[in-house]
């Protein structure tokens, strides 16, 4: 059984073709990098996979279930979690309460709120925020909020995690930290699709990379292959970053 299989996916906004006839799949346990210029359809793809948008055509099959056009909360309950490009933290909640929502409503939800609180602490610890559990989310830094969103998504116990520009706005040291964190999450057995603009980071992280341009897949392969692909260099990379 394929872990995730996408066939003929299409989405238009008015006259604009955001995604056109997209096919791809992921093996369980892999990190798939999704790159491309602005407006190439990366976030649209994540939105289609998580029910935030309904596709005009195509099918999405996740662990043998057809999840095409599924409701947002059902996607999470089926094991597909996500983070947002611009953080959407519950600002008037404590860090712990933020994570408790994922634990109380995600896959195999906790039996009651007390159990949810206990189990949510594990996710906070996983991202290194346990000492901030009682802090109001609005008092956290951007980096901490991004980690909090990650903890929240992890608390919903997903099999597939979609990260939308987790490293955007972070400095070099914080980005290193985030990369190490993503690797640890992979090692815990969670499959990921990672959208990033930091090319060096995505080349280092991904097992496989898909390059989108104007809603179409223009390359699909291991990082070493992608960064020498003349078409990819032309539309996105500008020069071969692997030579650095």
């Amino acid at each position: 059984m394929q872990f995730l299989q996408v066939r003929g996916l299409a989405k238009s906004f008015g006259g604009l073709m955001a995604i056109h006839d997209l096919d791809f799949e992921i093996e369980e346990g892999a990190i798939l990098g999704l790159i491309g210029p602005n407006g190439s359809g990366k976030t649209t793809t994540l939105n289609l996979l998580t029910g935030f948008l309904r596709p005009d055509a195509g099918t999405i099959t996740f662990r043998g279930h057809n999840v095409t056009g599924i409701a947002r909360h059902r996607a999470c309950q089926k094991g597909i979690a996500r983070t947002f490009q611009l953080t959407k933290t519950f600002l008037d909640f404590t860090a712990l309460q933020n994570v408790m929502v994922g634990r109380a409503y995600g896959q195999q939800p906790a039996r009651n709120l007390r159990a949810a609180a206990e189990e949510a602490k594990e996710s906070l610890e996983q991202v290194g925020l346990l000492d901030k559990a009682g802090f109001m989310a609005k008092d956290l830094t951007l980096m901490q909020r991004k980690k909090l969103e990650l903890a929240r998504a992890l608390a919903s116990r997903p099999q597939l995690l979609l990260l939308d520009e987790l490293m955007a706005g972070l400095n070099a040291a914080e980005a290193e930290d985030a990369m190490a964190l993503i690797r640890r999450i992979r090692d815990s057995g969670i499959t990921m699709i990672v959208v990033e603009h930091i090319v060096k980071a995505i080349l280092g992280l991904s097992d496989r990379i898909i390059v989108l341009n104007m809603g179409e897949k223009i390359a699909d392969g291991p990082p070493g292959e992608i960064c020498f692909d003349p078409h990819v260099i032309e539309v996105y990379l500008g020069k071969a970053p692997c030579l650095l």
Partner: peptide, 26 residues
């Protein structure tokens, strides 16, 4: 409001899309 459902309701108030992405039906 002190139950699981209350937590979901407040999550919807705080950030509806984030709540839904975590399994809460708004």
């Amino acid at each position: 409001v002190n139950s699981r459902l209350g937590l979901g309701m407040m999550a919807v108030r705080e950030e509806e899309e984030a709540a839904e992405s975590l399994g809460v039906s708004a």
